[in-house]
Amino acid sequence: MTTRSARRREILDEETILDATATILRRHGPAKATVLDVARELGVSHGSVYRFFPSKAALREEVTRRWLTAGHGVLAGIAARTDLPPPARLESWLGTLFGTTRGQVADDPELFATFLVLVREQSGVVDAHVAELRRQIAGILADGAADGSLAPGPDLTGTAAAVLNAVTRFHHPAHAAAWERDSAEADFASLRALVLDALRPARSDG
Score class of each variant (00 low, 15 high):
residue 64 T to N: 00
residue 154 P to R: 06
residue 149 S to F: 03
residue 148 G to P: 08
residue 128 A to E: 08
residue 9 R to G: 02
residue 58 A to P: 04
residue 78 I to E: 02
residue 151 A to E: 09
residue 4 R to M: 07
residue 147 D to G: 06
residue 132 E to C: 10
residue 91 E to A: 15
residue 190 S to Y: 14
residue 87 P to H: 06
residue 177 A to N: 08
residue 35 V to Q: 11
residue 6 A to E: 13
residue 205 D to K: 12
residue 102 R to Y: 03
residue 19 D to P: 06
residue 201 P to R: 03
residue 4 R to G: 02
residue 205 D to V: 14
residue 144 G to W: 02
residue 91 E to G: 13
residue 185 E to Y: 09
residue 119 V to G: 05
residue 89 R to I: 04
residue 157 T to D: 10
residue 106 A to R: 11
residue 90 L to P: 05
residue 205 D to I: 14
residue 99 G to S: 15
residue 186 A to V: 11
residue 69 T to I: 06
residue 41 E to D: 10
residue 152 P to N: 01
residue 2 T to S: 13
residue 197 D to W: 10
residue 123 S to G: 14
residue 84 L to T: 02
residue 129 H to Y: 12
residue 58 A to N: 04
residue 178 A to D: 15
residue 10 E to D: 14
residue 20 A to I: 09
residue 71 G to L: 08
residue 127 D to E: 14
residue 46 H to V: 04
residue 89 R to V: 03
residue 164 L to Q: 02
residue 149 S to H: 08
residue 60 R to Q: 15
residue 147 D to R: 08
residue 57 A to E: 13
residue 37 D to N: 14
residue 63 V to N: 01
residue 142 A to G: 10
residue 137 I to C: 01
residue 17 I to G: 07
residue 19 D to V: 13
residue 81 R to N: 14
residue 149 S to R: 10
residue 171 H to D: 06
residue 76 A to M: 02
residue 195 V to D: 02
residue 1 M to G: 13
residue 3 T to N: 05
residue 146 A to E: 12
residue 42 L to E: 05
residue 45 S to C: 04
residue 197 D to H: 11
